[in-house]
Amino acid sequence: MFATFFHRAVLTAISLLFGCTGEIITEKSGNLNLGVPGVMCVGGISGFTGAFLYEFFWSTPETANWFLAIMIPLIFCLLGSLIMGLIYSFLTTTLRANQNVTGLALTILGAGLSDFLGGYLVKQTNSGGAFVSISLSSKYYMATLPFANDLGWFGEMFLSYGFLAYVAIIIAVIAAIFLKRTRTGLNLRAVGENPATADANGINVIKYKYFATCIGCMISGLGGLFYVMNKASGVWSSDNLEPLGWLAVALVIFTVWKPNLAIPGAIIFGGLSILSYHISANNAISLPLEAKPLLEMTPYIVTVVVLIFNSLRKKRESQPPEALGLAYFREDR
């Protein structure tokens, strides 16, 4: 019972975790990328496109193999997200454009592009259907760990996910260690706190901003891929990805810019967002329909409370990076 709930929560949480970890790394460089929802959409649709091309054009059921079925969508997803990161970095870092405007435009681009491509691909199959499924790739993406079905609740809670779920957790842990313990992480945090100081200390601010944003976008994009492959089982629908992206932005605040806290945070947010569905699906209590939005609202309310709490407390360590949202130009005085 709880194990099933936990399992479902994690399926949503992993997308959030990818999105959040990527955005934390981006924001630590001082770039407030409000394009994350768009990046996740693009990550999802480019992975989907890769799988689609492989499944319907580049292979036959006889020649298809698991390695390419996994790698092609993965590479497409990373490339698509990377391009989004490059657009954002070029505009905000090189051309010093306003970060909010650029980010929102990026979200519009990502959501539009994924809707457009999604519709376009359906047309290409000539099946006349309203949706198209990439069952081959998603099958491999959804492959669980061994013993997932044999170990009862333990298997269901911890082993019953595709490999990307474990990748997400590993990335979050690595990101936490990277930010806290490594010299590069220290330098990155300095760029987000005080770019002029970082610059004066010989850190290449522009390079750091580019790398952090692009790598961050690639990680966020994986959240879209996970959603398509695992949560949606290979059926494209873009409706839920954009809200998920915004929830990931909220999660960044909720976790006070700490990727290690993002792991439990994502599971809490994931749990809250599926709680009403879970309760009504299991008929444990007959939950009125209108309780659903009230429950789904809670992650945002909690985030606002955290935001307010941190600004009231004024603790230096739990504030957003000092230079978040500001363009940097060395010769500005």
Partner: peptide, 14 residues
């Protein structure tokens, strides 16, 4: 001095 960008963004979803 609560960050207004993030605050107003959250208010949308509420």
């Amino acid at each position: 001095n609560t960050n207004e960008t993030l605050f107003t963004l959250m208010m949308n979803y509420i």
